[in-house]
Design a protein around this nucleic acid. Structure first.
Length: 951
RNA sequence: GCCGGGGUGGCGGAAUGGUAGACGCGGCGGUCUCAAACACCGUUGGGCCAAAACCCGUGCGGGUUCGAGUCCCGCCCCCGGCACCA
């Protein structure tokens, strides 16, 4: 019998046997509990797997194997996220077609996963680029469309000039393409969107009950970005001066205006011809010149409208004074408003500008143009100083009637809220900075409660900080003064609603999900347009809309999909036989990965995307394992689709992934050299990446080694192939499990696997010796007690192993195996001589040990199992049950403390009661030493644990 | 700035408010060997010391408790995410 771990001698044999026996085929037997274990849908990269990837595959496999042995029906499938930009870019680089390429890469992944011994049911494998799969992706797209959740519109989108496609908001990080780091441009193209915003509240609320890492939930909450506030209307005017809402506004008349308007009226009916436009322009200029004088805002505005009507044939609808909407979450600071700010793109500016003086109008137009030229990245640059210009108009405070200037500044974003804010520099940092830069007044209206509260606010201001805390009471706020922030928020919201000037409003930061991509390698969108631009869905019986089989698929220069230049694909007839044109954009890869977990339940169904019974059987995923980098995108999209499918009665669950686990990253030791004078480094880079060979040839002072995430581009990858060739699959598996807690990052060192290999060798030896042992005629007298020590150690270990695997504490589960081995080895060394029965019972313990080891080190376990004379596979063994009587300790070490300091320990029967423990403790010499001559005040006894004598 | 997670020997890390440092790596001493490697045995938080005993010790400062790595308050530092979102 083998007495060392020699993986090269037996691993391949078991791989073969497992494959031949179809060992990991999903069991779907009635009456068993189920476990659906799943890892994130991988894109199979050409570089293959690294030991870093194994850090989620191995632990999930251990859990799946344990659950199977415990009698669960286990679904543990694997497939490949083959559509999308990474695959297409890789294929372009190698001048290959992405189809066969991903197929080949996927097969390599599969080979490697088998090498590591991951127990997948490969009969369920699919690629998201399989027509039999994407047919149903298209089917779900249609469902979304019919439910009004997919829409097509011209939109200014994030455009990556390198990848030549539009990107979702989630794919833009700090103004750069998340994938290639190219600055994103704005571009107006017709796009498909999914209306995920309709589900914002539910996506937020349902996070509550998910067993997910806090950090991921927090990131999703932040991305959804719910805020509660008040949106209200503010009137604006071109004239400065106080207005009381209670007084009718004074009407002044102006002779210049009267004569101007007489001329305008004389022009007669509205007309859009060039001559009228020219005249209207002239009138508008004259009106602007008058605006500086004392005329009423209403009149001025009315006149502006009249002139506009003349030029553009517009109807005059507005009779109320002009106004704009603002949104705030701090309505309690309303009395601290000293100006307003609108985004440069705000539509009200079109109405304001004709009424203001030419100098102001010009400066606003110039500012708008400058803002338009700025990239998003530049606009949101950190620490950028505030910029802005006065618009020429004034907002009228809804309560005080006072006018405050309206500024135009790009720190207000058109895409959020109303694109206009009431600025409260006293209590908002951004407004504070703006006010300081442009010399606008700062009025404190919130003060911490108590004497001198206002001084604290003043202190904060002189330190350059707005007082933004909501802990305080209102001051300088008319009748609302002295109320707390919370009260005032409520009262003011009530006031706005009662006066019908505004109302409470919930705003989400999340936008709709942009899903179309102007690229070839993706799921075609099943839509046809007719000549009039009308849109129809491709009928179900014509799905899938297949990607054409073409040799060239390079993206176009002009924001059009490569599919657009393939006439056979584009030109179709509509349902009623007219000429039609296919949609040529494809779906972004995230669409494909938003439902694959449902398809795994029923992967070969060609009538439906899945059978409801199969999905009801398996969903939700009980344990979903992957990296934290998908915190927002994939996990949010998949949740959204699941909810839509739930609402349509197609799946019985509201949430796809009940429990989510993020594995830690594996870091490789990576050399960087100092940059030369001529080289410039990107932000965050502190050196130039070099290969280890290059590093070896450089002077030591030139090279810095750092731990960075393993990736092919960094050249710091260790593949499972290499690791297994040297140490074997089980040593790799054990090391992955043992090296650190599951969610901690790991600095990878190959020789760490040596320890695991040593452990396995010792197991082999212990088993071999146990089977070699021969019975003695005169066995040791206390054989019963001797064997019980082993049995107790075994059951304690079994209990811990089972618990630890379930709670993803694999490192301590492995430690428990090592502890058991240590105990058994020691016991074995002291075996003396044993009877036949004694040896038999010893071997039973070893069999249990091997079965318990099987999920973590399956190759060795099966090899040992066979060597022990057993048939079949450890995978088919029942997971042993813990004998609680044996798992419980008989004797315990009781700590004896005096005043909380440990002074001695005593061995006692585990069943000893308080009185026994106490009396045993008090007579210990070392305790007496510390208690003599002192008064014993109290004695705390924790049975099975400790005694604390308080003197 | 906001949010999340952390800070324990030389290192990775264990520890339902109850003996801090399980388990492993590394180190040290030894056995085997001509020798090395492998393997095996012993030892390994710091101080003091021949040893025992004792003292110190879980980022820092307070607190609660018979007892705090663990709970509470106030800080510091590290990692990750978000960031002009009104």
């Amino acid at each position: 019998m083998r007495d060392r771990y020699e993986p090269g001698e037996f691993e391949e044999k078991w791989r073969q046997r497992w494959r031949d026996a179809d060992l990991f085929k999903t069991r779907e037997e009635e009456g068993r509990p189920k476990l659906y274990a799943l890892e994130f849908f991988p894109y199979p990269s050409g570089a293959g797997l690294s030991v870093g990837h194994c850090r989620n595959y191995v632990p999930t496999d251990v859990l799946a194997r344990l659950k199977y042995m415990q009698g669960y029906n286990v679904l543990h499938p694997m497939g490949f996220d083959a559509f999308g930009l990474p695959a297409e870019n890789e294929a372009l680089k190698h001048k290959r077609h992405p189809g066969p390429m991903v197929q080949e890469y996927g097969e390599n992944y599969r080979r490697q996963m088998d090498l590591v011994g991951i127990g997948y049911d490969w009969s369920r494998c699919f690629f998201s680029s399989d027509p039999s799969y994407y047919r149903w992706t298209q089917w779900i797209f249609k469902l979304l469309y019919r439910k009004g959740l997919a829409y097509h519109k011209l939109a200014e989108v994030n455009w990556c000039p390198k990848d030549k496609t539009a990107l979702a908001n989630e794919e833009v990080v700090g103004g750069l393409c998340e994938r290639c780091g190219t600055p994103v441009e704005r571009k107006a193209i017709p796009q498909w969107f999914f209306k995920i915003t309709d589900y914002a509240q539910r996506l937020l609320d349902d996070l509550e009950d998910l067993d997910w890492p806090e950090g991921i939930k927090a990131m999703q909450r932040q991305w959804i970005g719910r805020s509660e506030g008040v949106q209200f209307r503010m009137e604006w005017t071109l004239l400065e001066g106080d207005r009381s809402v209670d007084q009718p506004r004074a009407r002044e008349s102006d002779p210049d205006l009267e004569s101007l308007m007489a001329e305008v009226r004389a022009e007669g009916e509205p007309n859009a011809d060039a001559e009228s436009l020219r005249k209207a322009d002239g009138f508008a200029q004259r009106l602007g010149a008058i605006a500086g004088d004392a005329i009423s805002a209403e009149e001025l505005h009315g006149a502006g409208k009249e002139i506009a009507r003349l030029g553009e044939g517009l109807e005059i609808r507005r009779t109320a004074p002009p106004s704009f909407e603002v949104y705030t979450t701090r309505i309690d600071t309303l009395f601290g408003v000293t100006f307003c700010v609108v985004a440069p793109e705000h539509p009200m500016l079109k109405e304001v500008l004709p009424g203001v003086g030419p100098a102001i109008a010009a400066s606003v137009r110039e500012y708008q143009a400058a803002a338009g030229r700025l990239s998003d990245a530049a606009r949101s640059d950190e620490g950028r100083e505030k910029t802005g210009v006065f618009s020429g108009a004034y907002a009228i405070h809804p309560i005080s009637g006072r006018t405050v200037p309206i500024w135009v500044a790009d720190y207000v974003l058109m895409g959020y809220g109303t694109g206009a804010v009431m600025a409260v520099p006293g209590h908002d940092q951004r407004d504070f900075e703006f006010a300081q830069k442009f010399g606008l007044p700062i009025v404190p209206v919130i003060a911490p409660p108590g004497e001198g509260g206002l001084d604290l606010v003043a202190e904060s201001h002189s330190a350059g900080k707005a007082y933004s805390s909501s802990d305080g009471v209102l001051v300088n706020s008319g009748v609302f003064s002295h109320r707390t922030v919370a009260q005032a928020q409520n009262d003011l919201a009530d006031w706005f609603e009662a006066n019908e000037i505004g109302s409470r409003k919930v705003v989400f930061r999340m936008r709709d999900w942009l899903i179309s991509r102007q690229r070839f390698w993706g799921c075609p969108i099943p839509v046809v347009y007719d000549a009039e631009g009308g849109l129809e869905l491709v009928p179900d019986d014509q799905l899938p809309v297949l990607l054409p089989d073409v040799p060239h698929y390079e993206p176009g220069e002009d924001a059009s999909s490569p599919l657009a230049s393939i006439p056979d694909f584009v030109n179709v007839t509509t349902q009623d036989g007219r000429l039609g044109r296919r949609e040529t954009d494809t779906l972004g890869g995230f669409a494909c990965s938003s439902w694959y977990f449902l398809r795994f339940c029923d992967p070969h169904n060609d009538e439906k995307p899945w059978s409801p019974e199969r999905v009801a059987e398996w969903m939700p995923v009980d344990c979903y394992v992957g990296g934290a980098e998908h915190a927002v995108m994939h996990l949010l999209y998949a949740r959204f689709w699941t909810k839509v499918l739930y609402d349509s009665g197609l799946v019985p669950v509201k949430e796809p992934f009940q429990r989510l686990m993020n594995q830690g990253q594996v870091l490789g030791y990576t050399p960087y050299r100092n940059a030369t004078d001529k080289e410039s480094l990107d932000v965050g880079e502190t050196g130039v990446l070099v290969t280890p060979e290059e590093a070896a040839n450089l002077p030591e002072s030139e090279v810095t080694w750092r731990w960075v995430r393993m990736s092919k581009s960094k050249g710091n990858v260790v593949t499972p192939d290499e690791a297994i060739a040297e140490y074997g699959a089980d040593a790799l598996r054990l090391h992955e499990l043992f090296v650190a807690p599951f969610d901690a990052d790991v600095e990878w060192k190959n020789d760490g696997m040596q320890g695991s290999a040593r452990f396995l060798s010792r197991v082999f030896r212990l088993v071999a010796e146990g089977w070699r042992e021969e019975a003695s005629d005169s066995p040791r007298a206390d054989e019963e007690a001797w064997i019980e020590v082993a049995q107790r150690a075994y059951h304690r270990c079994l209990k811990k192993t089972t618990d630890d695997i379930e709670r993803f504490a694999f490192n301590t589960a492995v430690a428990a195996q090592m502890t058991l081995l240590n105990t058994l080895s020691e016991q074995w060394a002291n075996r003396g001589s044993l009877s036949t029965n004694g040896i038999e019972r010893w071997r039973e313990v070893l069999k249990g040990f091997v079965v318990m080891l099987a999920p973590m080190a399956p190759f060795s376990a099966d090899e040992l199992w066979e060597a022990m004379g057993e048939e079949g596979y450890t995978y088919h063994q029942e997971w042993p049950t813990v004998d609680e009587r044996l798992a419980a300790a008989t004797t315990v070490t009781i700590a004896v403390q005096v005043n909380g300091k440990l002074r001695d320990t005593i061995e006692m029967d585990a069943a000893s009661d308080r009185a026994e423990i106490e009396s045993a403790a008090l007579v210990l010499p070392r305790i007496l030493e510390h208690t003599q001559g002192k008064e014993i005040r109290r004695i705390i006894v924790v049975p099975g644990r400790l005694v604390n004598v308080v003197v």
